[in-house]
């Protein structure tokens, strides 16, 4: 991952408003730059909420098409560009899971969470991140959409409660309590199978 600098390195360019101004002036290359800067973050967001690659791709395509068509409506005084994109993405994801309410949970994933074998003779440290991702996948899948949104925006994207509130269209206090509830639910849901697993993951990775 760190071997070579990716085109899609997750980073906000120093001057997003200037980049947007160049886009609006018709500079095609600036659109590409803008996409490259935010594509990974938006994909992560969509995937974390939808838990399905194809859906994430569909929604993300829709998000960027909408954002670029409505670029003039973005007001840099009101919010960071990433926050604006997140707002569009969350509202599109909501449309998506409203429609696929009963298909959203990927049961095969849930039922086949891979547990690392802590007593195995052959430690496979490369597997631990994947195992952790499986645990996270299963845990997120069991959260209600609102709690999932809150916890993903908070911990996956490091946003403030104020920003999360803007994105989720709720008061900051509500955003805060959603993160708290997600926290408690993840703790109790991860606990029966996950707690010892998480501890083992810690130990493996700290070795």
């Amino acid at each position: 991952m760190a071997d070579q600098l990716s085109n899609y390195e997750e980073q906000s360019p120093a001057d997003v408003p200037a980049l947007i101004a160049r886009c609006l002036a018709g500079d095609q290359n600036s659109y590409t730059q803008l996409y490259n800067c935010f594509a990974t973050a938006m994909y992560r967001l969509c995937y974390s909420l939808l838990l399905n690659r194809q859906d994430a791709e569909d929604v993300m395509q829709d998000v960027f098409v909408y954002a670029f068509k409505n670029l003039r409506r973005y007001d840099s005084q009101k919010s960071a560009f990433k926050t604006w994109l997140c707002t569009i993405a969350v509202s599109r994801c909501r449309n998506m899971y409203r429609r696929k309410r009963f298909l959203l949970v990927d049961w095969s994933q849930l039922l086949h969470v891979q547990f690392p074998a802590p007593h195995s003779d052959m430690p496979e440290p490369a597997l631990t991140r994947k195992d952790a991702a499986d645990v996270i996948h299963a845990a997120l899948a069991e959260l209600s959409p609102r709690l999932r949104e809150a916890v993903v925006l908070r911990y996956g994207h490091g946003l403030t409660y104020r920003e999360i509130a803007d994105i989720m269209n709720c008061p900051p206090k509500t955003a805060e309590s959603r993160v708290r509830l997600a926290h408690e639910q993840l703790r109790s849901r991860l606990q029966p199978v996950g707690h010892t697993l998480l501890e083992e993951l810690w130990q493996v990775q700290e070795q």
């Binding site: 995937y47 991702a133 996270i136 911990y155 996956g156 993840l186 707690h195």
Partner: peptide, 21 residues
């Protein structure tokens, strides 16, 4: 532990490959 796990894993969760992007 749950919070640490979330903070550590969520930023890596669902990373796309470049071909998808």
């Amino acid at each position: 532990t749950v919070k640490q796990e979330l903070m550590r894993e969520l930023p890596h969760f669902g990373k796309p490959d470049e071909s998808a992007l």
